[in-house]
């Protein structure tokens, strides 16, 4: 354990082209690109499935099947198929991002369609009955009500992507996985453990940021996080005014 601490606190390990800062930056970068692409694909698709109820069976089974595909195998296969057609860093970067996107799509897609589906049928009926058009129902009612589930889908996708981005190192890219594999190659346990701790810490940090963001974006009417004074007042008033 001391060796791990020494490794982590050694200033020399933090700097340079293969330092912790650089590797962390790479790791965040790989993850962010994958999440952005996955979200851009899965959120609109999920909203559409949830709103129209169409292709639901397909969406459910697609997410299930994608989850069953092992990331490592897909990574190697896509490098061999795609890598030969691309040049330089792209030859490994594109397949890696592909794997991370495949990993991130199922939770985001499931969050989006389940989020829209669980919107109170009465609220949806009332929205239409008051004269909202299809897109207005989607953007003014269904989307805001689906935000808690969409964001929890995004958060679990982020966790998995950050954890799996370590595999980038297995195909010669950077990221925090480098410390794990480089350490493994020379049996440097301090470096491996240090790398593992860094990945877990990064995942937690990102989750923390995401949960803060979620609190800002999601209406307090949905989370029940309305302030205490209000609740106390309500208890007083329900008896008086119902």
């Amino acid at each position: 354990m001391n060796a791990v601490l020494t490794w982590l606190t050694d200033g020399a390990h933090w700097q340079g082209y293969d330092g912790i800062l650089q590797r962390t930056w790479e790791h965040v970068w790989y993850s962010a690109i994958a999440l952005a692409i996955a979200a851009a694909l899965a959120i609109p698709l999920g909203l559409w499935v949830g709103h129209t109820g169409r292709a639901r069976f397909l969406a459910v089974n697609l997410t299930g099947a994608l989850r069953a595909v092992p990331s490592l195998g897909l990574l190697f296969a896509s490098i061999m198929v795609l890598g030969s057609r691309l040049d330089g860093e792209l030859a490994t970067l594109v397949p890696t991002e592909l794997v991370l996107v495949v990993l991130a799509v199922p939770p985001i897609l499931a969050g989006a369609y389940a989020g829209v589906e669980q919107v109170d049928a009465a609220a949806r009926d009332a929205a239409r009955g008051m004269g909202m058009r299809g897109s207005e129902v989607l953007f003014k009612v269904e989307l805001p009500c689906a935000l808690p589930l969409i964001s929890s889908g995004l958060r679990s996708a982020a966790l998995q992507v950050v954890a799996t981005a370590t595999l980038a190192a297995a195909v010669g890219l950077g990221g925090l996985g480098r410390f794990l594999l480089d350490g493994l190659a020379v049996r440097d346990y301090a470096q491996m453990a240090g790398g593992a701790i860094l990945v877990a810490a990064l995942a937690l940090l990102i989750d923390l940021v995401a949960s803060t963001l979620q609190r800002v974006v999601v209406s307090p009417g949905l989370t029940g996080k309305t302030d205490r004074r209000d609740n106390a007042l309500r208890r007083l008033k329900t008896t008086a005014a119902s």
Binding site: D120, A122, A123, R124, D125, A126, A127, R128, G129, M130, G131, M132, R133, V141, P144, C145, L147, V218, S219, G221, L222
Partner: peptide
Amino acid sequence: AELRRGMGYVIQQAGLFPHRTVADNIAT
């Protein structure tokens, strides 16, 4: 949609929008 905007509509479960305040619900 125009037709519906010109008629009040009240249903059994109220169907209030959970993400909007009472005032915003009324102002729909």
